[in-house]
Design a protein around this nucleic acid. Sequence first.
RNA 1: GCCUUGGUAGUUAAGUGGCUAUAACACGACCCUGUCACGGUCGAGUCCCGAGUUCGAUUCUCGGUCAGGGCG
Length: 369
Amino acid sequence: MNKLKDLQFLEVKNKKMQLPAFLPDATLGFVRGVSSNDLLKCGIEGVVVNIYHLLHGELINKIKEKKGIGNYMKFPGIIISDSGGFQVMSLIHDNPQNGKINDDGATFLYNNKKTHLTPEKSVELQLSIGSDVVMCLDDCTYPDSSLEEQNISVKRTVEWAGRCKKEFLKLTKDMKANEKPLLFGIIQGGNNLDLRKKCADALKEIEFDGYAFGGWPVSQEGNFLNDILKYVAELMPENKPRYAMGVGRPEDIVACVGFGYDMFDCVIPTREARNNRLYSFKSNFFGFGLRKLKNNKKFYEYIRIRNLKYKTDKKPISKNCDCFACSNRNFTREQIYKMFKERDKEAIRLATIHNLRFYTKLMERLRNQ
RNA sequence: GCCUUGGUAGUUAAGUGGCUAUAACACGACCCUGUCACGGUCGAGUCCCGAGUUCGAUUCUCGGUCAGGGCG
């Protein structure tokens, strides 16, 4: 029924990842709270690191010493590097005292540290750590930013994408095919369909290995931008991977797979694990097809493990979960509650493993339509 | 026995002769969409006891009591 199956894998540098895929954010070169081994056991086949945070945290040289981010992380899967474009929004646009942005690039002033990124520099850094998928530096905005800001954002994003491509070609021209990473372009334009189209057309003209939906995917009122996501997916070439950056909640991912997206990253499963929310599938989930999943946001539920009612709950987090915490009745809610209350780091680990397994299981289900 | 310092929320502290007495942690509920994130929002919960001075005392005075310190 769908064109999802057109693209079953993302392949790069002799690595292979099943699609659609969820990639947790390993911003600083690790997924908070868990080891790379934990990730593999959860079925995670790729992660997203962030070149701004790696640079700001002065980790680039350490990564180079280890001969690449894969070795550094001891993670054999696909590693996407985000360009720092999101931080242009989350740090500078949100708080101009954190830096300046102009047509050349962005200068971050954060925690008394200066970090300068241009499109060329971002690409160079991403290549220097041995990233598998290089993201173009973009000027990321909120959907409700002013039209003027959206215009500037798209203009810059397109120009920067051109510069990224040029730099990428220059730096990778001598690489063998099985050493060469991919380069993805990011489509901006906020909630403006014309700008989205303009941006997508320009990026397709430049030609990338994959295309991403960029920008904050949620309206000011807190509604997921289904229509925009759908529209942008249709602007992307069907034969190349489509990446919905920052998406999202389980029902949003289901919707986006329906629109044609293949790749997702989001802080939700990991951050919420640390902050109390643990997901589980309702039993009907396993009988649902994609269409039914799309029309039924209630295929899952969550518990807030630190709530008082779990203090004496001897059930596992989820009865139909096979994660390390839940399987073999390894840990009860009562135990994890207690570990959280005692600030035991293992609580965060178990919770993160649990939520990541929930997400990988969701993706497995979406692959088998 | 004498002298001395102190007693404010569950804990540790800040503060005031007059507005709904403050913060952190802990507690309870909620939130989180390319991580500024074990973070954020909201809520509940306090001036040791008695007497005095005063229009008004958690605040000043005296006594009690409890805890710490010093001297015997």
